[in-house]
Nucleic acid binder design. Sequence first.
RNA 1: AGGGGCGUAGCUCAGUGGUAGAGCAGCGGCCUUUUAAGCCGAAGGUCGUGGGUUCGAUCCCCACCGCCCCUACCA
Length: 534
Amino acid sequence: MEFEPLDQFLQRRKKLSEIESLGHAPYPHKFDWTHTPRQIAGEFGGRTAEQLTAEPVNVRVAGRIVALRPHGKAGFAHLAGDGGRVQVYVRLDVVGEQLFRLFQLLDLGDIIGVSGHLFRTKTQELTIWVERIELLSKALLPLPEKWHGLTDIEQRYRHRYLDLIVNERAREIFQRRAQIIRELRAFFDRRGYVEAETPMMHPILGGATARPFVTHHNTFDMDLYLRIAPELYLKRLVVGGFDRVYEMNRNFRNEGIDAIHQPEFTMLEFYQAYSNAADLMALTEELLRGLVESVCGATKIPYGEHEIDFSRFERLAMREAIGRYWPAAAGAPPSSAELASPGGPQAVAERYNAFARAHAAEPIAGVAGKSGGELTGELFEAIAEGHLQQPTFIFDFPTEISPLAKCREDDPSLTERFELFIAGMEIANGFSELNDPADQERRFRAQVEKGGVDAPKEVDIDYIRALSHGLPPTAGEGIGIDRVVMLLTNSHAIREVILFPLLRAAAEEQGAAPSGSATEAGGPAGASPDKKSK
RNA sequence: AGGGGCGUAGCUCAGUGGUAGAGCAGCGGCCUUUUAAGCCGAAGGUCGUGGGUUCGAUCCCCACCGCCCCUACCA
């Protein structure tokens, strides 16, 4: 297989043959290094030129050539590796003709190993005085332009490896992502949670409201859904005696793609027995504050135009939030009492729609056919959600839109459920888990009867059976990890924090190159904590 | 899904109704402390794809493909 740009590809392949004919293995198996490019600066950055002369430091370093400045009978290059870079200096009179010829045959992008001692150049840059040089892997294709790098967004995702080589920010985002995931695991492990891996292929859809991907198992001749949520399996584990359990992995939702949604997305779900929603709000606050401190080194972090302050989390009932952010042009804001009264949400929604029609905003559709709880949820989304920049827990979710949550003891129209919003995004969703099997079965059946494209088609009888064995009073929560990574990396598109976001498959072309014609199939993908479950 | 924008050399981008340019990368030459190294020279393109208008289209029109942004929907 040959790739465009063909002239450069062939040119580099020719150089590789010449390197072989000089007696070098084209793809050697091993290079013993003493330091990574990053470690050189870290360990020896403080040494002066005099110290390096008095006490020579010998190193062996491997890396990718990311800059190359030949000067006739000598030359400089920068090797990148381990997130750092180091300059090397090669001289004909030091390495000899044979190795210098090898140096001349190197290209930007090649991976080499060098050995030598450290010195400082005229400009005081810490540099390796190369005595031996070895090709470790030839780059047959050129790197993107050295100054502007790779800016085309589509190319960056289709050829993420180039993005990672060339764009430091991309590399930093994914290193930080790994750090976040490490910290989250440590947080739950410290507190005695068991990490579980529940099925990703589900015979019955459940645990959220979303349209699924469907797949097929050949031997069992059985259709399966890629999971939209692990919720029902994790609660089975609580029934089984894992009182504290968590899972952090992919969910798949066959729905729209935008700045905060991908079909394949990562969610953390955790459950703890003998706890309720209020306990989880406190835990979530502790978790996120600690995470931001350890990852960003501060409790206030910049996010676009805003500064987000994780030292304080606001708590606001959903009905209060509607009143608080009610548009001034829509008249007097509704009271929580009005929203709680029979027919209240309908009246408020009509008032909002009158305002919306007059101000080119989107009205709430189908008011007459919706329950008060559904309308309350929609009013909240239309009016308040986008205003919630600072960390804010919204609680008192209506029962109609919370089929897995336990009702409030004093008000069956509301549940012990909350969602956390930051920067206008839904970040977390948690509640006291409904553990009454009869009530759960009723709510499941109501969902199935109601129908709709994303409604469950059948009741998960085994889950009801599990509840019938007794689920302790339990609280559970889901946190959208991709969105947390967005916040902590000041990223404003979810695909910036997903290594290989789903793209439309490009047409395969013979000889297609980094210019963007290789097919990136991308399987089913998905992304976000959802409204009705974690 | 609707509206807007974009698609020109490998990369980053100019440009014009008379079939096209720069910088970087690549190629040849010079260059033993450079760092967006420098200097000289040559090369590189089906201007996203397919139609149409025109004597002539990369440019104007239509359709399609892909990407981006906004709005909406799935949630």
